[in-house]
Simulated assay, not measured.
Amino acid sequence: MTWHNVLDERPELSERWQANWPDCPPVGHELQRFYSSRWVRFHSLPESKRYADTPAEYEILLRRHNTVLSELFDGQEVFVVTVAYTGESEFTTPLEYPEPLSLNPGARLWMTVTEDDEGEEFPSYSHMLVTHQTWRRGALDSLLRAAADDVIAGVLIADLRMSHIYHPYDGGADCAFPDSAARDRLKAAHREWLSSHPVGL
C-alpha cells in the first residue's frame, strides 16, 4: 500500500511533517507501521474495552485522553487535523458527513491524499483539514468523544513542529514521538493503559 499526494495547499505544514515523518503521509494509523520504535498505543478504557456505554466510562475515556494530551502539549499551540473522506479528488462543501468541519471549527484544507490501489474502480480521497489553537484540558472533548464513538476518523493533534503526534481513535490513541526515549517516558507513566498485545496494538 502506498499513498499519493493529490493536492498540497499548505506546503509549510507538509515540510514540518516531512522533517519528522518522511516515510508516511499524515495518516494516523500508518505511524505504527513505519515508526514502531517511536510509537505507543494507549487504550481508553479498562481491560481494553473498545466503546464506552455509560457516563462513567466516558468520564474515564476523556480523562485518559486529556491526561496524555496535557502531558504532551500543556500550554502549547497545537494543530488539530480532521479528515473528510470523499470519492472526489477536489474538496468541496457541503459534505455528506459534516463532522470534520463541525468538530474542527474554522478548519481549512491542508492536503488531499489517496491510496494507490491498482485496479480500484472508485478511489477514496482523504481531505485533511487543519486549525491551530492553544491546548487546554477539555478543549477538544467533543472531538475526542466523536473519535471514540467512531463518528469521525483520522484525527491528528500535533505540536507546531509536528514532532509529537496524538491520534485518537475508537478504542484509544496512538502517540508518536521524536525518539524512542520520549516514547518510553510516557509509556512508563501509563503502563496500566497499555495493550497486552505483543506489539502493543
Rank of each mutant, 00 (worst) to 15 (best):
Y85D: 15
V80F: 01
S89A: 15
E88T: 14
L69Q: 11
G87K: 08
F91P: 09
T93M: 15
V81L: 11
E77A: 08
G87C: 05
V68K: 03
S70L: 04
T92M: 04
G75V: 08
E71T: 09
L72Q: 01
E96T: 11
L72M: 15
Q76L: 12
F73M: 10
V78N: 00
A84R: 07
A84G: 05
D74V: 02
Y85T: 14
T82P: 04
S70N: 15
E88S: 14
V81Q: 05
E77T: 12
T82C: 10
T86R: 12
V83F: 00
T67W: 06
G75F: 13
F79G: 06
L95Q: 07
F79H: 14
A84D: 10
A84P: 11
Q76I: 01
E90Q: 14
E88N: 13
G75M: 10
E71I: 10
P94C: 08
V80W: 00
S70Q: 13
F73L: 07
E96F: 01
V68N: 00
E77F: 02
E96R: 11
A84C: 03
V81C: 13
G87N: 14
T93W: 09
T92E: 08
F73W: 03
Q76G: 00
T67F: 01
E96I: 06
E71H: 07
S70E: 14
L72S: 01
L72I: 08
T86S: 13
E88Y: 09
T67N: 07
Q76V: 00
V83M: 02
E71V: 07
D74T: 09
V68I: 15
P94K: 02
E71S: 04
P94G: 03
V83Y: 00
E88G: 02
T93R: 14
F91D: 09
E77R: 09
